[in-house]
């Protein structure tokens, strides 16, 4: 049996205590995790490390003896990623073990004269802790990436509401940059709603789109053409002055497209084309609290 494994298993309790102390000095987040829970985790990790060092040796952390340790660390860092720990906090959780291990090694070697063996053990401990820290960081990043991908998906679904303005008139207010994957979702969503609600007019409002480059314009044109193939008509509204300038400077041809500066203009046009008109029938009526007040005074 090798030196390191023996030292760890003999001093497991003191190592764990010092490890905990190290962490409380730097990265312990009592707001996110109780001390007893942390103590439990440290105990489990140390046990799995002893098992790993005994069966597969201290450097071969991808070996079968380390399965438990790897799994445990991955689970812990994944759950920490979700809880909102920072990368430094998660990495330091494992790296704090180093100081504790070194202390244990020093105590075990006070009487030993063999310097070579001491250095070998220290090196093995360093390498071991570093590798474990890498496993932790990798698992942390993977979980964060999963989170990001899921949120992107949710954002895509959330960000394209199609609203019905009137019988046969839809509006799609686009907010944010249009890229290819988003345009596909926007397009499908709009066209499906056109069919489902039997709406001949669809107003695409781009007030919330920061810039219109050639690509965005192409995406818009494709949506409009697809709508036309289905028998619906698109009106673009919310063209801001800068965007109008960019469109002309870029030489984008929007001649076959009806564009309006404001959503209300586009709505008025859609009403007019569908043979409707908004007519004022009398003076503006007081409403809400003010109307109550008027009654009282009388």
């Amino acid at each position: 049996m090798n030196d390191l494994a023996e030292i760890i298993s003999r001093n497991a309790d003191s190592i764990r205590k010092q490890w905990m102390a190290e962490m409380s000095g730097s990265v312990q987040r009592t707001d996110l995790m109780s001390k007893t829970e942390l103590d439990e985790q440290c105990r489990a990790i140390l046990e799995s490390i002893i098992e790993g060092v005994k069966t597969s040796g201290p450097t071969n952390v991808s070996g079968p003896g380390w399965d438990t340790a790897r799994q445990l660390l991955q689970e812990i860092s994944a759950s920490r990623a979700r809880q909102g720990f920072s990368p430094t906090e998660v990495a330091t959780f494992v790296l704090s073990l180093k100081q504790a291990l070194f202390s244990a090694i020093r105590t075990a070697h006070t009487t030993a004269k063999n310097q070579d063996q001491l250095f070998d053990t220290v090196w093995a401990a360093t390498e071991l802790v570093d590798r474990l820290a890498l496993i932790t960081t990798e698992a942390f990043t993977a979980t964060r990436e999963e989170l990001i991908v899921r949120q992107q998906q949710e954002l895509l679904e959330l960000s394209t509401p199609v609203v019905k303005l009137w019988d046969g008139i839809l509006a799609l207010p686009i907010i944010g940059t249009l890229d290819s994957s988003r345009t596909q979702v926007v397009m499908e969503n709009l066209l499906q709603t056109v069919v489902a609600t039997n709406s001949k007019y669809a107003i695409i409002d781009i007030t919330g789109v920061p810039t219109v480059d050639t690509l965005v314009a192409q995406h818009l044109l494709k949506t409009i053409t697809a709508a036309r193939l289905m028998g619906a008509e698109c009106i673009i509204s919310g063209v801001r002055p800068q965007i109008a300038q960019t469109i002309v400077h870029l030489g984008i041809n929007l001649e076959d497209v009806i564009t309006k500066a404001k959503l209300s203009d586009a709505f008025a046009l859609a009403l007019q084309r569908s043979g409707r008109a908004v007519v004022r029938q009398g003076p503006e009526r007081a409403s809400g609290i003010s109307s109550l007040l008027v009654k009282k005074e009388e």
Binding site: Q184, L191, Q192, V194, V195, A226, A227, L229, M230, G231
Partner: peptide, 14 residues
């Protein structure tokens, strides 16, 4: 007049 083209068909055609 061509009527009733499905959205997926229209997107593909474009």
């Amino acid at each position: 007049v061509v009527v009733g083209m499905q959205p997926a068909v229209a997107i593909t055609l474009v």
